[in-house]
Amino acid sequence: MSAKNPEYDFKWCPGCGDFGVRRALEFALTARSQKHEKPMSTNVVVAGIGCSGNLVHLLEGEQPFGIHGIHGRTLPIAFGVKMARPELNVVVVAGDGDFLSIGAEHLGPQAQRNLDITCVIMDNGVYGLTKGQSSPTTSLGVKTSSTPFGKIEDSMKPLSHYLELGVSFIASHYSSKPKELASLIEQAMDHRGFSIVHVQSPCTTYNDTYELLKGNKAKGIEPMAVPVPDDYDPTDINQAADLLSRPTIPVGVVYKSTRPTMSDRYAQVLTGIKERTPESLMRPYAL
């Protein structure tokens, strides 16, 4: 949506973390377009369903292409776009409900394919748009409208899950620093392979975690979000596993590794086969 659209009546709540993520994605897409001298239209943003998915309608300035599809299916849609048109830059924007609950089955296949796309995940630990139900990242014991007596499932650990599945680029941040976040998203887009930037994006209405993330000296609250150490080597999977075993939330690139992408491997297959024409395909059936 390049200009104010009076018909589009969706609004994020004041202070929603998704504002910062949107800004960061705008910075990153613009920077990428300039750096690679490619028009904005070579970017495709595939959005999930939920508050975060509305980001695709709220982007300001020059517009990328967009798909706002069905709940949980951003990854396979992005897979289709990318494998049909490998030259496009494909970015998934989704929340913890869309990406990690209903859509969780699609993570493994993309990781195993090392599909060359970037996911920007807005994790607010709650289903906001449906007014405050528990999500996979809601903590154990937390009361929500759907867990009135406290959540009785453990919360999942998205970053460890990504690492275990073989995601080849994993970064983590929170939504309050769009410039820093933009840099991580840019790195993720430049990475050849399946990249996820997992962003803590607080829901000011149902799960306001700003204070926990940033800390509050006056109240003696230590920040949850802690930058990765200066000597941290994100290419070392053991260091990554060690980092993720801590109770804090890392800020920065958690893990990156290089291996052939889906497109690379498919291209490799093509070099070894003879292309068939419809005429030649009829031959085995000829009488």
């Binding site: 599809g69 299916r73 396979p76 849609i77 992005a78 897979f79 289709g80 049909a84």
Partner: peptide
């Protein structure tokens, strides 16, 4: 959903 993404992209 994959053929949908591909169809959208022109395939």
């Amino acid at each position: 959903t994959a053929i949908l993404g591909a169809g959208y992209a022109g395939a």
